[in-house]
Write a protein that binds this DNA or RNA. Structure first.
Lengths: 239, 239
DNA sequence: CGGGCAATTGACGGTCTTCAATGAACGTGG
DNA sequence: CCACGTTCATTGAAGACCGTCAATTGCCCG
C-alpha cells in the first residue's frame, strides 16, 4: 500500500472536479476558501420525482444544482399546483437568511446537487463577500427571469404560453441544436407543463396537437418534441 | 451671518433625517460610510404618473424609495401591460450589476426616491459587503414576493385575484387599521389594478360591484374602498 | 355649466376549463 | 414474451368564466 496522505487531502474535495465550479456562486472563491466550503457541503444524488425541499418547511437546507433539472413549486389553498420556475445546473436552491422555505423543490430527472445546512451556509456567506456577491448577482438574474414569467402567466393565451415553453425548453436542453431538426426530450409530464403555464392538462395537449397539425412541431413520443418551424413559434410567442 | 462650517458639514446629508434610514439597504452602514453614499446619491421628487425607469433602457440608475408608491411594469409584444410589482418605502429599484433595466418604474402617487448612478452604486456596493448583504436579503424577499404573485396570476380566478389585491393594499397602506372600518385610498386606476391582476378593467369593475352587493366592501368614491368584511375576503382569497 | 375621461353595466362571443370516454405507453407478474 | 393493469395522454362535448364591444353613467376640472 502507498503512503497515506494528510487528512486534508484524503477527504475528497468534490469541488475540484465540479462541473459547475466556474459558473455557480462559488466561482470567485480561491482554493483555500473552496476547501472550507467543501467541508461544510456534501453531494447528494436525487432520483426523478424525489423531493429536496418542502414548501413551508423550516429552511434547513440550501443547495447548488450540479446536474439535472428541478422544479420549484407552490400550491393554492385548494390544492392546485403552480410551478414557480425550473432550476438548471449552477442554479442556487433554497432560502438563505430566512426562516422558512417558501416553495418546494423536486427533481424532474436524475440530478446531482451540492447541499449545505442553511446555518453553515449563512455563516460562511457572511464571512465571504465574494460569495455573497455572486449569490446576489444570481438572485437578481433569477428575479428578472421570474418577472418575465409573470408576463406569460398574466397576459398570454394558451397558444403563446405553449410556444414560449417549447422555445425555452429547446434553449435550455439543447442550445447547440437551434437548427430545427433535433428532438428535445421533455423532462416533464403534461400535468407539469400545465402547472408551469397556468393551464390545464387538456389545454396543453390540445395546443400541442394543433401545433402538430399546423406542421410547427412533431411528437415522435410522449416525451419528445421536434421543433420543425422555430421561427413560426417565435412569432406566436411574440419574440 | 454666522461662521461658515466645513465643506463636509455644509453639504446637506439627507441620509441623517431619512425616514427609511433604518429599513433600507443602507441600514447597516455607519456614519462615515453613509457620508460617502450620501455624496454619490441625490434626492428626487416624482409626481404621480412620472417615470423613473424605462423598460429596456441602459441601466443607468438605481434608487431607494423613501416615500410614495411606484409600479414596476413590462409589456407584451402587442402592447398589453403587465405590472410586475409595487414598490413601497425602503424598497430598492433598478438593476445593479446589469446592462439593461428589465422593467419600467413609474410613480403612482407623489413619491420621493434616493437616486444613484448605477456605476457609482455598483462600485460602492462591491466595496461595502454590509450593503451588499442588505441588498441580497432584500432581493431574496422580493423574489419570494414575486413568486407568490405568480400563484395569483397562474391559478386564481377573478374573484380571488381582486380579493387578494384588496387585502394586500389594505396591509400596505394602513396596517394600523385592520379593524374593518377605515377607508383605504387606492393609488391606482381600474386599468392599473387590471394590469396587476392580469385581468381587464371591466372584470375588475364587475368584481368590485359584486363584492359591494355582497356587503363585503364599500366604495364611497372611485379611489376609496372600505373593507367591511375582512375575514370573508380572506376566505375568498384563500388565506 | 359642459367637456372629457374614468368607471360601470349590459349583451355577446371566444377561450379555456370541466367532465367524460377512449387510446397509448409503461411496468409487473404470470 | 405477452397479458394485464395502471398511469398518462388525447380527444370530444358542454358550459363557465372572462374578454370584447358598446352604451351609459358618474366624476373631475376647467
Amino acid at each position: 500500500m502507498v503512503e497515506t496522505h494528510s487528512l486534508a487531502s484524503r477527504s475528497t474535495n468534490f469541488c475540484q472536479a465540479c462541473s459547475v465550479r466556474n459558473r455557480a456562486i462559488c466561482a470567485d472563491l480561491d482554493d483555500s476558501e473552496i476547501e472550507v466550503l467543501n467541508a461544510i457541503g456534501r453531494r447528494r444524488t436525487l432520483e426523478a420525482g424525489e423531493d429536496l425541499l418542502w414548501e413551508g418547511d423550516e429552511a434547513l437546507l440550501v443547495a447548488n444544482v450540479i446536474t439535472g433539472m428541478l422544479k420549484l413549486s407552490t400550491h393554492t389553498a385548494d390544492g392546485k399546483e403552480q410551478i414557480l420556475g425550473l432550476a438548471y445546473p449552477s442554479d442556487f436552491l433554497g432560502r438563505p437568511f430566512g426562516e422558512t422555505t417558501p416553495h418546494g423543490a423536486q427533481a424532474l430527472i436524475p440530478s446531482q446537487v451540492c447541499v449545505f445546512a442553511r446555518a453553515d451556509f449563512d455563516r460562511f456567506a457572511k464571512e465571504h463577500p465574494k460569495l455573497e456577491h455572486k449569490l446576489l448577482e444570481r438572485t437578481l438574474r433569477e428575479l428578472d427571469r421570474t418577472r418575465r414569467w409573470m408576463l406569460l402567466l398574466g397576459r398570454m393565451n394558451a397558444e403563446q404560453k405553449v410556444a414560449s415553453f417549447l422555445l425555452e425548453m429547446s434553449d435550455q436542453i439543447s442550445p447547440q441544436f437551434a437548427d430545427d431538426t433535433k428532438a428535445i426530450e421533455l423532462p416533464l409530464t403534461r400535468q407539469q407543463i400545465a402547472d408551469i403555464l397556468g393551464l390545464t392538462i387538456e389545454t396543453v395537449s390540445r395546443q400541442l396537437s394543433t401545433f402538430r397539425k399546423q406542421g410547427l412541431i412533431d411528437l415522435p413520443s410522449r416525451r419528445e418534441v421536434i421543433l420543425s418551424n422555430r421561427s413560426a413559434l417565435e412569432d406566436i410567442a411574440g419574440l
